[in-house]
Write a protein that binds this DNA or RNA. Sequence first.
RNA 1: GCAGGGGUAGCCAAGCACGGAAAAGGCGCAGGACUUAGGAUCCUGUUCUUAGUGAUACAAGGGUUCAAAUCCCUUCCCCUGCACCA
Length: 956
Amino acid sequence: MSGYDEMEKRWQAEWSRMKLDNAERDAGKQKFTIIFAYPGVTGFLHVGHLRGYTYADAIGRYKRMTGHNVLFPVGTHATGNGAITLASRVSNKDPDFIDYLIRNGCPEEKLEDLKDPMKVVDYFNTVYVNDYWKRFGFLADWRRFTCTVYPDYEKFIQWQFRKLNEQGLLIQKPYYSPACPVHGPVAVDASETDISKGGNAEVQEYTLLKFKRGNEYLVAATLRPETVYGQVCFWVNPDVEYVRIKNGSETWIVSKEAAEKLQLQIDGITVLSAIPGKEMIGWMCEAPMIHKEVPVLPASFSDPNVGSGLVTSVPSDAPDDWISLEALKKDPAFAMRYGLSESLVGSIVPVSIISIEGYGEFPAKDVIDSMGITQPGDPRLDEAKKQVYKDGYHMGRMKDVCGPFSGMRVEEAKDKMKQAMLDAGEAGIFYDLTEEVVCRCGMPVRVKRVDDQWFIDYGNDDLTERTSEHCRGMEIYPPEFYENVHSTLNWFRERACVRQGNWLGTKFPLDEKWTIEAISDSTLYPLYYIISLYANDGRISPENMTEEFFDHVALGKGDVTEVSKNTGVPENILNDIRGDVEYWYPLDINLGGKEHMTVHFPVYLFNHRAILPDWMQPKGILVNWYITGKKNKISKSKGGAQPIPGAVEQFGVDALRLYYAHIASMFVDVEWNEDSVMMYRQRLDRIMGTVGELLSSDQSDEKKDIDEWLISRFNGYSASIKAAMDRYDLRQAATAVYFEMLNDIKWYGRRGGNSKAAVREALRIWIPLMAPVTPHIAEEMWSLAGFGGLVSSSQLPAAGPVSGSAEYREEFIREVMSDISQIRKVTSADPKKIFLYTSPSWKTNVMRMGLEMMDSGTLDIPSLTKRCMMDEELRKNGKAVTEFVKKAVTDLSRATGSKRDATETDEYSLLVSAKGFLEEELGAKVEVFSSDSGSIYDPQNKSRAAVPGRPAIYLE
RNA sequence: GCAGGGGUAGCCAAGCACGGAAAAGGCGCAGGACUUAGGAUCCUGUUCUUAGUGAUACAAGGGUUCAAAUCCCUUCCCCUGCACCA
């Protein structure tokens, strides 16, 4: 129990009472609009998610305190089948899931409700807003909250798609998508939201090779159509039952499983009859492209679930083929069992077709040999296959035996040969998943052809170009993303934007049998936060939100009176909305997790560019990396991380916020670690304790040097922190605020600083700087200091002047102390007396001359020496001067600033004034001498080592 | 496959974009102070060397430069994201 609960809630209530969270248009103030990419409603969030959100709030708060009118709206994304899945798990009384809900604080009586997907959405919306964002002290404009499945939001999305259509950016074409027979298209991805198995599967394109035998075809599926010139035989699994199928006018033979898959991809396929694999062994069939008769041989590796279940054999470049052929040759008895004569098997010789640097005639053999694989079925064959494939693809060249493709690079030949066979009717295309995928409902997921799939045409050159161009003028962090966002935009092709099946989401306006897919309905939405305000309080309703309405408020089209008449929205409301849009748009910052670099951000940019005018184009993007779990990622679905309410209770909100802000740069992943958060908790305790002491201790009105130092330092921080915050570098800012400034305050006290005025001035600088990241404690201390008002609504004071000399003088003292303790350490002595000798003034003079020459660019050892020797006084000291000049010149060429200060500081009186302090700190008597003065106590002649900025030291 | 990031002290992590003083800050560790029993706090130290102002480091190896963790090249090793998943 942190005990901060009460304080946090008190200030949150106060901010709310003062309406700090509401964003209202104010023409006299510069606006700043920021959002974070809203989360999907898929369950409880964990501490990792708050990282990005916290950045957004801290930035918003900082902007508020630097003269901006800030709009920071939030929402959620419920499109998809997440809520449906959750609801069905509740309906099915899935014990794990029920337990998960209860454990995360869902009241038991709520469960009945959650059988309804929309209630699930509502429930989690409440949790996100109240338990996470409000609890974290965010100053978001809650009135604008929206969710992608709200009827008004859907109107907006439909409008957006009409606009895309007007631009000619919606296109239709066939598409191959993983689909469940019951639920339609499903997402196959590592998070396994839609599916229960096979998250790593990918859709792969196979080339179907047709091997003619009489009037039917044995159909093999291959990933390597470029190897057809190396075909020497054909593999059939003798233990598998295959089927004849009718495809148009042709009869094909494939595995039963493949037939089922093909039916989803090719119309009119019917199964004719079964045929055991055994029966086919020994057949001869004509290989495509090369038109040679090849024998059908038995192979156990031929899997009915993969591809067509039949495999063409290219031993030269396929390790499986090579090893299986070898095995067959070595075991004539086995071959005989299938009626294969030894001479037939023996006559099959691999054909070398691809030359790859570093490989011999038969790449497959080379890999097998180097990996030490000796028989079929070795699990490493998979790896061997990948190796040969990869090297062949990138470095390979087709050999002379490859007809018209001879000499081509494999990369190029692959497509050309595939196309040639397709054109000749010798091949087909088939899509399959790389591993078994099972839907949440238990049905197998297969690749299905969808004929009239709609796409958004992100491949459009003009759009890509204009979007890319706009990005050059944006503020995009990290810089790497600024650089490579262009290649991401270029890489984008058509993207399927609608889907069918049991999904929550907006109906596609051009054809309502489709539902708009989850990424596509979340591209232009920041704009909707401006309008949602009016929808949420009932000033407008979904029925009002026609195309004309959005054209007017978003694009400024049409005449208000006319639009008002047609939409039923009063003119003044239309004017207000339009005015808000003109004021708040575009977005200054869109903040999202690193995955969005290739997902949301590109489409966000594209859609803005496609639909909205120049002045509404986005200004900034900020990407945050993740908080990860130990070893593996913490994830929403799999859990493993601390629930947010528990963490809040344990550490307090501000400690968590500071943890996010400071633990690492935004652009690296961080492993979640409770001890680290605790450390930040303690640091905040220390700061509050220190400030409390400062406020309660007796202070004087007396002015001291150290006061000037403190204020100078704080002014310096104030400026550098603002600079850091302007770059959104919260970490650097936090280092200064929570570490360096505290250290300085401590040093100030140690040096005897206790001026009431200086302390108050320092706190007026310091506390507001804490407000963006740790607003609750900042507010608490602000009020404790009696500064009046809320620090959260105050403005950061302008940074005052920095005194270089005050800071140098203090640095000088610290270095003297450091040198003394250094000497003490090496001598392990415990001196009773410490003698300090400041530099003789002739050295200071030499240094000054050096600085002058440096300024005029004429500094070097001989010139400075010469100049010194012209001086009567210096010449007396000839040898020492030459030596010092050497040193001074090297020093000066490294760092000039501190040397300049050194020549301008009266070190003797500075040390004398610090004498008391030094004696106390060092626990010894301190004597200060100037090397210039005639009679000094210096038994070891240490004083000759003294230089400006570095007094000599003698311990005794 | 496509695209991108990184290797700095025992650990985390700044700095590298605009090359110029062992390299911020934190953690950990060691000593001390304090005074308590707190997941305290405060000092000091933490590459080596040395009565200090010296030497040497930034994955490895080359190069450019008066000067490189920072720029260029090569090699090795890690990591991340990738479209109907948000």
